[in-house]
Design a protein around this nucleic acid. Sequence first.
DNA 1: GGCGCGCTGGTCAGATTGACCACTCTACTC
DNA 2: GAGTAGAGTGGTCAATCTGACCAGCGCGCC
Lengths: 155, 155
Amino acid sequence: MIRTQQLDATDRRILLALDEDPRAPIMVLAQRLGLARGTVQSRLERMAASGVLRGHSTRVQPESLGRGVTAEVSAELDQSRIDDAVAALRGIPEVLECLAPAGDTDLLIRVVATSPDDLYRVSEEIRLCPGIRRTSTRMILRTVIPYRTTALLAE
Amino acid sequence: MIRTQQLDATDRRILLALDEDPRAPIMVLAQRLGLARGTVQSRLERMAASGVLRGHSTRVQPESLGRGVTAEVSAELDQSRIDDAVAALRGIPEVLECLAPAGDTDLLIRVVATSPDDLYRVSEEIRLCPGIRRTSTRMILRTVIPYRTTALLAE
DNA sequence: GGCGCGCTGGTCAGATTGACCACTCTACTC
DNA sequence: GAGTAGAGTGGTCAATCTGACCAGCGCGCC
């Protein structure tokens, strides 16, 4: 298993500066941070190559794609068919993320939909995946603290 | 309430191209997509200005900041002190996200930690926030489907 | 028909980048 | 102490890109 490269203080400063302007030129970042242009360039290249950043599209708000409803689906699986279930879930575009927690629940699935009625459709689609025994859907009423890592970067 | 701008097919093509190379020059994107340079530039500017994209740092993997343990904390709140609770949660760097679901649980809190022991510390810190009556922590054992929106973009 | 919007293709000065180089500093090993 | 490797700085230069602006065209709306 590849060990995820750790970010040092310089990397974190660059990443925080990119929050201000994600497409800022390397020269501009270098001037703002008091670093050499080559340093910023090599750090960005290294971060891009090392997998410490997720894909650019993870920045896209699902609402802007017409999916204003978010929910979390808990699923219980047929233990011998986990791979089938996961493969089927991958095929559902509205499935944003799928985690395996400790405890009774087998999967926690983050989904989006265009409306409550559409959420019903997505939930049904999940329920009917092979290997899925039972599901429970909880609609998210509000995003109280939007996803962030800035506080960790700034430490 | 400001209505989130919707992304059209051209926007989505640009965003998918950015998944290939997040720092690709506008000229390169234009050539790849068969669009005029001015079109790509104006679309990127509009997406940047309209809030359809989250901050750049949302791309950062928490593991690369030493937080290899992820968990979900469910919290029950003192209804009259929700604002206090949320303000206190905002002050905890390890809190990545906080959602308000329908149902018995008042808050679903996504957290990270450096180790199971550190997770205990973070859970305690949350439990001791003003307005938080009771919490339940579930460690995430595995990310089965990493967060993605590519399937929605590609529709 | 007129108007507004968005796109294309264009220009041009200024800025940036990619690739390379030499030098310096630090940390590590022997 | 000497030698080595890695990382950063400051530099060069040709190629590329960008920002700002422009004219023309097509489409949708009134």
